[in-house]
Design a protein around this nucleic acid. Sequence first.
DNA 1: TGACGATATTCGTTACGACGACTATCCTTG
DNA 2: CAAGGATAGTCGTCGTAACGAATATCGTCA
Lengths: 155, 155
Amino acid sequence: MAGRIQAELQQSRAIGSLEEEAYLNIQRTANALSQRIAELLRGHDLTPAQYNVLRILRGAGERPLNASDIAGRMITRDPDVTRLVDRLEKRGLVERWRCTEDRRVVWTRISPAGRELIDPLDQAIDELHRSLLAHMPAEKLQTLVELLEEARDGA
Amino acid sequence: MAGRIQAELQQSRAIGSLEEEAYLNIQRTANALSQRIAELLRGHDLTPAQYNVLRILRGAGERPLNASDIAGRMITRDPDVTRLVDRLEKRGLVERWRCTEDRRVVWTRISPAGRELIDPLDQAIDELHRSLLAHMPAEKLQTLVELLEEARDGA
DNA sequence: TGACGATATTCGTTACGACGACTATCCTTG
DNA sequence: CAAGGATAGTCGTCGTAACGAATATCGTCA
């Protein structure tokens, strides 16, 4: 019967596998949640990627990081980090200088202005994270985390 | 003790809430899985968004869709559909013509070439979807789907 | 020392997705 | 029928993320 309907609609994949349904649900959920984060950050003229870089740099404290370090802590490739940090430097949120011992590397460090921008944001982001999933009991969240980790094992 | 370490590293949010952990896991998993899909499609010179549009159009059969229809079935906004379909038209994968009754709307339909491109792809995509999550029993996938749906309820 | 491979970054390009603004067309309503 | 609002689509712009290629520098080893 389902096959009949599928043939008529010419949508042979309309009713997909459980695996596909899981895939689509992961994508939709990731999208819905990240939009809310982006929305909050937009009010402070930051994109999620920029906020992410600033947090990574702040996490390193006074110790500067190079592009590969930053890329390694994100999912991003080195080439993209350059331009991402370019924009942050242009706004004075990070400082960059070339390493004198190894002139190939460029050190990057968060600036005081960068800190001033993201420090007050932490609490808001943390609260948003919590509130987005506050309707779920901890036990379910724990299960969700475990299932997602397991899901990634195959990819 | 944990607070001590956090203070030293200046990473006050490094050890986040369970909600944040869930959020990050959703993002990472979505990313890991969609990369594999994109990889497969790249071999056929299609992006995920393009494949998505073509499947939507094929699903409509002979009946053409306008930009709002297409946008409504994706997460995408109307303005972006225009250019997305522009590229598909340039490659002859879709046909577009202006509606005569209401000259504001532009009908879009998948072309024979478009069908020929995606028809053989369906099986490969379906198999990839399955194989990416094949290591998880159906029961866990079902739980995952339910938890993700519940997670979205808050956003 | 000089050639060669490895490493770190930058540059060029394309596509996507978000924002807003603009145009064309239709529809209503006075 | 004309004015104004609604609708459908397009255009301009930016930032991100992917690809590959190019450049600069370093380290090694013959």
